[in-house]
Design a protein around this nucleic acid. Sequence first.
DNA 1: GTCCAGTTTG
DNA 2: CAAACGGGAC
Length: 222
Amino acid sequence: MGGRNAFVEAYTRLFQHFGGQGWWPGETPIEIVVGAILTQNTNWENVRKAIVNLKDAGVLDFYSLLELPAEVLAEYVRPSGYYNIKTRRLKNLLAMIRDRYDGNLDGLLADQTAMARENLLSVQGIGPETADSILLYAGGHPVFVIDAYTHRIFSRHGLVAEESDYDSIQEEFEGRLPRDAALYNEFHALIVMAGKHFCKKTTPLCDRCPLRGLNGMAGDTP
DNA sequence: GTCCAGTTTG
DNA sequence: CAAACGGGAC
């Protein structure tokens, strides 16, 4: 087992099993930012329908979204679920960019990582995972995105404590891995794949999981 | 009926 | 710590 570093080992195994994921599946920064909010606790396929609605309506750009009446925007994003609250969250983010970056999304993404993250987290409806997804996938900042899959997979393998919070898990990952945005990008996407296909919340498929035995435990499974 | 690339509020 | 937000797919 090339296992001095189980985090690197996990990445290697997942990449070999699933291959490169090529995230984020959005073409422009605004599309990635919108997708990051719409995908909160929601299946990506439903988010994709909402993005298609916005594209078809020709409003997937900063000022169109900013000026669009909330009730209209809500109809477009409806397929992604939580559509009223997500509409509000999108509007909150757009207003922050308008106020602090003169309406320039690229300005936010080009800001220093710590400052951009702080500004994102100040928006009601943007928590650490959404903020870091935007920083990493739209801005190319080297921040590791932690999600429910990350917590579940790595705690099941005894590599992070069950009770660890977002920031401490993130510190663990960033401390164990090279500070490389391309690596973080691919690794998080692979973790999502592992969570979907093997490390399910109920009835995990441990016997066939590419991560079985990752930490030298009796199978690393609960 | 269950689950989903979460976050806020009670 | 629990409830709320919610449509779509299986």
